[in-house]
Simulated scan of single mutants.
Amino acid sequence: MPSLFDPVKAGDLQLANRIVMAPLTRNRSPNAIPNDLTATYYAQRATAGLLITEATAISHQGQGYADVPGLYGTEQLDGWKKVTNAVHAKGGKIVVQLWHVGRVSHTELQPDGGQPVAPSAIAAKTKTVLIKDGVPTFVETSMPRALDASELPGIVHAYQAAARNAVETAGFDGVELHGANGYLLDQFLKTGSNKRTDDYGGSIENRARLLLEATRAVVDAVGGGRTGIRLSPVTPANDVVDDDPQPLFEYVVRQLATMNLAYIHIIEGATGGPREIDDRPFDYEALKTAYREAGGKGAWMVNNGYDKPLADEAVKEGDDLVAFGKPFIANPDLVRRLRENAPLNAVDKATMYGGGAKGYTDYPTLA
């Protein structure tokens, strides 16, 4: 029976254990450029089998929060190269999460102060982060405009270019498409945010089209074995909902099964909240079965609210990887702490977003 600490293969990625650091936005990259502190932060956590970076914008248009990193400029790629070098020097593996926020943005963050973009011109009832007088401040998102179908190939190309730059220039071991949590690809998937009447709206096949086109383009650029994708079937994060998520996501994973991906990363329940939502039941085992029966061989990664006993049980029951989020913020040596059943540091919530080393690189490790 495999354990949480056994090695595992995820596509082309040979991982030392099954513990994954989930993507965690920290708002510490001014001008969207990762810096030396970023490199220290990730290197401290390199004992994870796999590090997934904080969500990283594929284009200026894809940017939705102040001081989050990007992948679309030379200085950004140079900054990330410092990070991957630091992680690899510690023997770690790291992939970058490719992000387009869609409507979850603000005109102050968009090129030339333009409107954010979305499948349909429906505002997200959620907030984003701007820096006001040096302080991270939550503000309402701006009203988006609906993307014209002629703009979508450019967005697909931006995913592909970001993936290629991430692997070939910045030195990442792979990439993860962010198809979850109410951002652009998820906005297209779900009926609550997609009211289109063209080839990208209406039917399940149409709503899934952009996500699948972007994934194929990324696979063409870096290979399926270096590509993962994150999905969140029922999370209410960022004001997304689908009328019937089970057939939608079973269709999506059956299509993804043909692409020989490294892994599928599933958020179970409400992101950062309850693992089960009373009015949004979902059968995750049926989802995994649909993927496997369609020929999907990638690792199956589970996420949301996992502790050591729950993670042990997941691995015993056939999940390949378990992603931990907030515990990795406060515990750079989380793998050791889990192995030794040691107590965990608590997260300092006041320093989660923005700032410097405090609450970022200064959490204590075991002696």
Rank of each mutant, 00 (worst) to 15 (best):
P274A: 15
M259I: 11
A163V: 09
L24Y: 08
G228S: 10
G223C: 07
G70V: 11
P111V: 13
P34K: 05
V302G: 04
D283A: 15
T169Q: 14
Q255N: 02
S142E: 00
V96W: 06
G355F: 05
N35K: 03
Y291R: 14
A22Y: 02
L177A: 09
I52C: 04
D199L: 10
G224T: 13
E168K: 06
Y42P: 02
G201I: 02
L152H: 06
A208G: 00
T351S: 12
R45H: 02
A346T: 15
E276W: 11
T40G: 05
A66H: 06
V117G: 02
V156W: 04
A237E: 01
E250I: 09
D133W: 12
A46F: 00
A32I: 04
A39H: 13
F5Q: 01
A48Y: 07
A123M: 10
M301N: 05
A170S: 11
E293G: 00
A286I: 07
A158Y: 03
L344H: 07
S29L: 12
T84K: 02
Q97Y: 06
M21I: 12
K316Y: 03
D186C: 06
I33L: 12
D112C: 05
S142V: 08
Q160T: 08
V83M: 07
R103Y: 09
E317H: 15
K297R: 12
L189A: 07
T289E: 03
L77R: 10
T191N: 10
R103I: 13
Q63C: 11
P153M: 12
K297Q: 07
A350E: 01
R26Y: 06
G79A: 03
D307L: 14
L13G: 03
P136L: 05
M21L: 10
P7E: 09
